[in-house]
Amino acid sequence: MSTILEVKDLTKKFADIEVLKGISFKLKKGETLAVIGSSGSGKSTMLRCLNQLSPPDSGQVLLEGVNINAPGIDLNTVRADMGFVFQDFNLFIHLSVLDNVMFGPLRVRGMSKKEAREIAMNEIERVGMIDKIDFYPAQLSGGQQQRISIARALALRPKLILFDEPTSALDPELTGEVLSVMTGLANDGMTAIVVTHEMGFAQSVADKAIFIDQGVIVEQGVPEKMFAHPRHERTKLFLSNFVGLQ
C-alpha cells in the first residue's frame, strides 16, 4: 500500500511552551493510527496541526506527497480532503441532520443538490441514523450527534479522517455506538488517525499506535505488542493507568 500521509518534524509553540517538539510519522492508505498519551501531551494539537486548524511553527505535512504548507496550496481543498471529527461534535446547530451532512458536498465540493443528497443519505445510513434525517442536533443524544458528525466528515469523500477524542465528551453508555461506527469504517478501509483514550479500541482496531508524551513520540508500533510489552518507562507508566489491558 502507498503512503498517504507523511509528517516531518512538526513543532508548535503556544506562547513560550513547546507543545510539539518534532513529530514525524508515516501513514499508509487504509491504515488506522491510534494516537495515545495523557492529556496535555500535545496529541490534539498535533491533530490540529495536520489540517492547519492551528498551523505548525515548522515541519512538513505531506498529503499524497504534496507539501500542504507550501505556498500556492489551497488550504480549503486540503482540509476538505482531511475529514475532521471534533470531541464536542460541532454540528451546525441551525441545520437539520440531512442538511448538516449535505453541507460539505453542496457548499464545499459544489455538487448539485441531488448528488449531495444521495451522498448524504448513504453516509447517514452507514452510521445508522436514517430515521433521524429531519431532526436538529439539539434533539439528538451525544452519541447520535457524533455519528452524524462522522457522516458529515465522510460526505466530503476525504482521503483520510482525523478523529479528535471522539468519545471523550460522551457518557460511557454512549461511547459504544460511536466506536462501532468507527470500527466499521476501519474495516471498510478508511484511512484514519484517532486521538483516543479508548485503549480497547486502539488495541483491537488500530493497525498502528503512537504514544506521545511532552510533545515527542516516545514509542510507536503495533498496538497489541506495544500495550503488552512497552519498551519505555513512560509508556509503561501511562499504560498502567488503564486497568483490564491484557
Binding site: 482540509r79 441551525h94 464545499v108
Partner: peptide
C-alpha cells in the same frame, strides 16, 4: 459558538462562505 466556525473551517469552507452559511443564519 467558536466550534461552529472551526467545524466549517475544518471542512474546507472559505471565510466568506463561513460568514454567509454559518454566522449569518445563526
Amino acid at each position: 459558538q467558536s466550534g461552529q466556525i472551526e467545524a466549517a473551517k475544518a471542512m474546507g469552507l472559505s471565510k466568506p462562505k463561513i460568514i454567509f452559511y454559518i454566522v449569518i443564519p445563526q
